[in-house]
């Protein structure tokens, strides 16, 4: 192995790693606030670029009807003035989609907002009614949603891949496109933003408080339901943006979310599902590990990557004091 190859592998590893990192950040965020392990994050991510491709082609994607249906359920669950948000959001979304057909800029925005709306509706309809349940019950719900959303993705978009045009054309250096630079920049920016949000802003601290102690937070005037919705909205936004930025590099298809989500999960576990910087570093580590194993032993790559979980879980279980439930 010479220096060029080493450099290219490192670059490839970091590029993949930050993508896992983005999803891992969203996972840690959602887990911290709601105790939900957001397995369907990969599917939320997949919906964005595929909806965008559909809109660009002048068609209304099936995800729109899914979002509106969940929005309607959300509205039914709310009382009085609480119905304003889902109804107004749904109507706005429908209008935006009708306007965005064939208009790339509006379609980008529409796909983004669709996933955010869908993320919040998912929380309100599926997770909030069972917010007192155990982590395990929430995880089972999340896995179920992952399977359902992936299946719906296949129904909406078919089995083949699509490749939207990149925002930026061309290569920055050998092995790194400008679009890749964009993804890197976005990842670092959102990692920093999340860090600041939870450490510096009152609202971020309120979210964390709601996660720590629901009753205590309520006594301080924080609504845990609202906190959950905000967490899902942020996760949806991050998933949608990374999906839209990544799709030109890796081709979007209904199955793209699962593996990305799973590897993000490995990274999030490396960070103990609590620490943003460690989860992000863990994600880059997973990416690098993957890049080098695909060079040396490509047939065993996935097995080796998931083997990383074993020492991480072992370490976590040694470190953990007491039992959570």
């Amino acid at each position: 192995m010479d220096a060029t190859i080493l450099g290219l592998l490192l670059l490839d590893g970091v590029q993949n790693g930050v993508v896992y990192g983005l999803l891992a950040l969203a996972m840690v965020l959602v887990f911290a606030v709601t105790r939900v392990i957001l397995v369907p994050i990969g599917e939320l991510m997949m919906f964005a670029p595929l909806s965008f491709v559909w809109l660009q082609g002048g068609k209304l994607p099936g995800t729109l009807w899914l979002a509106l249906a969940l929005g309607a359920l959300w509205a039914l669950l709310e009382r009085g003035r609480g119905r304003g948000l889902p109804l107004a959001g749904g109507a706005g979304l429908l209008l935006l989609f009708l306007l965005a057909r064939g208009n790339p800029a509006l379609a980008y925005l529409a796909a983004l907002l669709l996933v955010v709306y869908l993320g919040v509706a998912t929380y309100r309809v599926f997770f909030q009614p069972m917010r007192e349940a155990t982590v395990l019950a929430l995880l089972i719900m999340a896995v179920g949603l992952h399977v359902a959303y992936q299946g719906l993705g296949l129904v909406f978009f078919g089995p083949e891949q699509y490749r939207p045009d990149p925002l930026l054309q061309g290569e920055a250096t050998v092995g790194l496109t400008w679009q890749g630079v964009l993804v890197l920049a976005f990842a670092l920016l959102s990692a920093a933003a999340l860090y600041l949000f939870f450490r510096r802003s009152l609202f971020g601290k309120a979210l964390l408080a709601a996660a720590e102690n629901r009753l205590g937070a309520r006594l301080c005037g924080i609504r845990p339901e609202e906190a959950g919705m905000v967490a899902f909205a942020i996760a949806g936004l991050m998933a949608a943006l990374s999906g839209l930025l990544l799709a030109p590099l890796i081709n979007a298809a209904y199955f793209m979310g699962f593996m990305l989500g799973l590897k993000a999960f490995v990274a999030a576990i490396l960070g103990g599902l609590v620490s943003y910087p460690v989860a992000f570093l863990g994600a880059v580590l997973v990416g690098l590990f993957e890049s080098f194993t695909s060079f040396y032993a490509s047939a065993y790559k996935e097995a080796l990557v998931f083997l990383l979980l074993v020492p991480a879980l072992f370490y976590q279980s040694l470190r953990a004091k007491g039992v959570e439930e």
């Binding site: 793209m256 993957e290 047939a299």
Partner: peptide, 20 residues
């Protein structure tokens, strides 16, 4: 003789291996 998965998002490692 290299392998990759249908869902893989990068095959740079395998490609470099082949090129060498």
């Amino acid at each position: 003789s290299e392998r990759y998965n249908r869902t893989d998002t990068s095959v740079t490692g395998q490609a470099l291996r082949i090129i060498t």
